[in-house]
């Protein structure tokens, strides 16, 4: 079941990216993408604090960035 979910996820994301007729923009079309709030990690400190909380309280970490060690959170 999990394998199926994984394969579906990879399939859907691949199709959604590769399937688009024309991907990307010209440099002069980056007005919206260039905004700080459009960055993939627009609030690095929020992300850092959240990572610490969820690393301490849940069995998963990382994915977006490295989820390595760093605390003996109890």
């Amino acid at each position: 079941m999990n394998k199926i979910i994984r394969l579906c996820f990879i399939f859907i994301t691949s199709i959604s990216v590769m399937g688009c007729a024309s991907l990307g923009v010209e440099p002069w079309e980056r007005d919206l993408l260039a905004k700080k709030e459009m960055a993939l990690t627009s609030s690095p400190l929020d992300a850092s604090l959240d990572d610490h909380i969820y690393f301490s309280k849940e069995a998963s970490s990382g994915g977006k960035s490295f989820g390595g060690g760093g605390c003996g959170c109890n």
Binding site: V17, L23, G24, L32
Partner: peptide, 9 residues
């Protein structure tokens, strides 16, 4: 990947 002027994945 930049998809278009509004979308980034």
């Amino acid at each position: 990947q930049v998809i278009n002027r509004r979308m980034l994945v």
